[in-house]
């Protein structure tokens, strides 16, 4: 097999793994948007906040330590214990549920029936607020996140591909784990929404608020539920991304990549979010490989690299022109 094709395959596989990340963040967006019509700009910051909280709890950090010390002249930073990863994850889930409740109680309950743009603005405010709270609670330094996910080259894939193709693929164990976990998460969500009472109620609310009320569904409850699930998805994304590149502010910027994913997949489609994320993950890696660094077709096109910064947006733009509802979104037919 020609080398270019093998490299290309390796690149595509790695792109797929990166795409899982985008899918996860986009999924958080879609869940909230479907159920409440809110485009949650804070989804990325939620991932950052979740990851910071997880690290903080794991390390036994005292929340708001700086604030406490500055106010009372104390000098405390740590409780002096560490918390096992699994327990810390559970506690973080509790924090995300509390956050979901607070967001609805103090923000969105007061904005019922407002224009989508107002709800969107509220989430921008929420993003800044949450970012500030995260810093205040856990400190702004870059943190390493370690919940025991295996990292480094997968020897088995490396060995097997070397035997078959004479070229060993470099696939990170972390990416494989992330993919498996994301797949489980999505399967879990689908099972939840189709086979549980709450899942049914959630789909009902996503479809029609008035009808949902008339069959006895509490909208407030569903909104807290959906924000909790989005918080959980953010936590999973935060763990994966944080384990890969450390927990730092840039984590919240993956939300920006979710936007083109949503344009591709459609804002209301869960399969769309997943497929969209994968397409963009693979697409941008392959594009960079072929045309960014000119390694395909004898290097006829070589854009000099860094295409990953814009590829997703250009692809999304093309979609906006030719298929504005996205791959999986419902066709928009204006009734007149």
């Amino acid at each position: 097999m020609p080398d270019t094709l093998l490299y290309g395959m390796e690149v595509a596989l790695n792109g797929l793994m990166a795409g899982v990340m985008y899918s996860l963040v986009a999924l958080g967006f879609v869940l909230i948007f479907k159920a409440s019509g809110i485009f949650n700009y804070a989804q990325g910051v939620m991932a950052l906040f979740a990851a910071m909280t997880l690290v903080g709890i794991q390390n036994g950090q005292v929340p708001f330590a700086h604030l406490i010390n500055a106010t009372f002249g104390t000098n405390i930073h740590h409780f002096g214990w560490t918390v096992p990863a699994l327990l810390a994850i559970l506690l973080t889930v509790v924090v995300m549920i509390a956050f979901a409740w607070a967001v609805n109680r103090f923000v969105f309950r007061h904005l019922v029936n407002q224009e989508p743009i107002i709800l969107f603005m509220a989430t921008i405010g929420l993003a800044f607020f949450l970012e500030g709270v995260a810093d205040l609670m856990w400190g702004a330094d870059i943190k390493t996140l370690d919940v025991g996910i295996p990292q480094g080259i997968n020897e088995w894939i490396d060995g097997t591909t070397f035997e078959v193709f004479g070229y060993g693929f470099f696939i990170d164990n972390l990416d494989i784990t992330a993919t498996v976990i994301a797949a489980l998460l999505v399967a879990g969500l689908v099972a939840f929404s189709h086979y549980t009472k709450q899942g049914r109620a959630l789909r009902a609310v996503a479809d029609d608020h008035q009808a949902a009320l008339s069959v006895g569904i509490s909208l407030n409850f569903i909104w807290v539920l959906v924000w909790s699930i989005a918080g959980f998805v953010a936590l999973v994304a935060g763990i994966m991304w944080g384990a890969k590149s450390g927990v730092q502010f840039s984590l919240s910027l993956i939300a920006l990549k979710a936007l083109p994913v949503l344009m591709l997949g459609g804002f209301t489609s869960i399969p769309g979010a997943i497929v969209g994320g994968l397409i963009i993950g693979v697409g941008e890696k392959l594009f960079e490989f072929c045309f960014g660094t000119g390694q395909c077709f004898g290097g006829v096109i070589n854009l000099g690299g860094a295409t990953e910064n814009w590829f997703a947006y250009v692809l999304a733009l093309i979609f906006l022109v030719f298929r504005p509802q996205g791959l999986f979104g419902e066709k928009i037919i204006e009734r007149v």
Binding site: D208, A211, V215, G216
Partner: peptide
């Protein structure tokens, strides 16, 4: 006010949520 995206059966099933 129906759940337009769901099947007839699923719509009727929402009446059973309680």
């Amino acid at each position: 006010a129906l759940f337009e995206g769901m099947s007839v059966l699923d719509n009727v099933m929402t009446g059973r949520l309680g």
